[in-house]
Amino acid sequence: MLITNRDGKRFLENVLSLGSIQVVNYILPLLTVPYLVRVLGVDYFGLLAFSTVIINYLMLITDYGFNLTATKEVSINRFDNNKVSEIFSSVLIVKMLLTVLCFFLLLTLILTIGKIGDHSVLYLITFLSVIGQSLFPIWLFQGIEKNEIYYIYKCFYTCFIHNVSICFCKT
Rank of each mutant, 00 (worst) to 15 (best):
Y35P: 01
I55N: 11
L60D: 10
K72I: 14
I27D: 00
Y57N: 08
V24P: 00
E73L: 13
G65M: 04
N77L: 06
K72W: 04
A70Y: 01
I55R: 10
V24L: 08
N25T: 07
G41D: 06
G46V: 10
I76D: 05
V74S: 12
T71F: 06
F45S: 01
D63S: 12
L28A: 02
K83L: 07
L47N: 09
V39P: 02
L58Y: 10
L68W: 10
F45H: 04
I54W: 01
P34L: 05
N67I: 01
N82G: 05
A70K: 11
I87V: 14
Y35W: 07
I55E: 07
I76F: 03
A49Y: 07
D43F: 05
V39M: 05
R38T: 13
D43C: 03
N82L: 11
P29L: 00
Y26L: 10
I76H: 02
S51G: 12
E73Y: 07
F79H: 15
T32W: 02
G41F: 05
L31S: 05
I55D: 10
E73W: 11
E73F: 04
I76E: 14
D63F: 03
P34A: 05
F79E: 15
N25Y: 04
P29H: 00
F66P: 08
N56R: 15
V74G: 13
R38I: 06
L68F: 14
R38A: 08
F45Y: 15
I76Y: 02
T52C: 02
K83F: 06
T62L: 04
P29V: 00
L68V: 15
L68H: 12
D43S: 12
P34R: 13
R38K: 15
T32G: 00
D43M: 03
P34H: 06
V74M: 12
V74D: 07
D63G: 08
K72V: 13
V74T: 11
T62S: 08
N82F: 10
T52G: 12
T69R: 11
D43Y: 10
F88K: 15
L40Y: 08
L48F: 12
F88A: 08
V39A: 02
L48C: 03
A70I: 02
Y26G: 00
T62F: 02
L28M: 07
Y64I: 08
R78G: 04
P29S: 01
N82D: 13
L31M: 13
T62E: 05
T52I: 08
N25V: 01
L47P: 01
A49N: 14
L31I: 13
V53E: 03
N77P: 00
D80P: 01
I61F: 13
L31V: 11
G41E: 06
I55Q: 09
N56G: 09
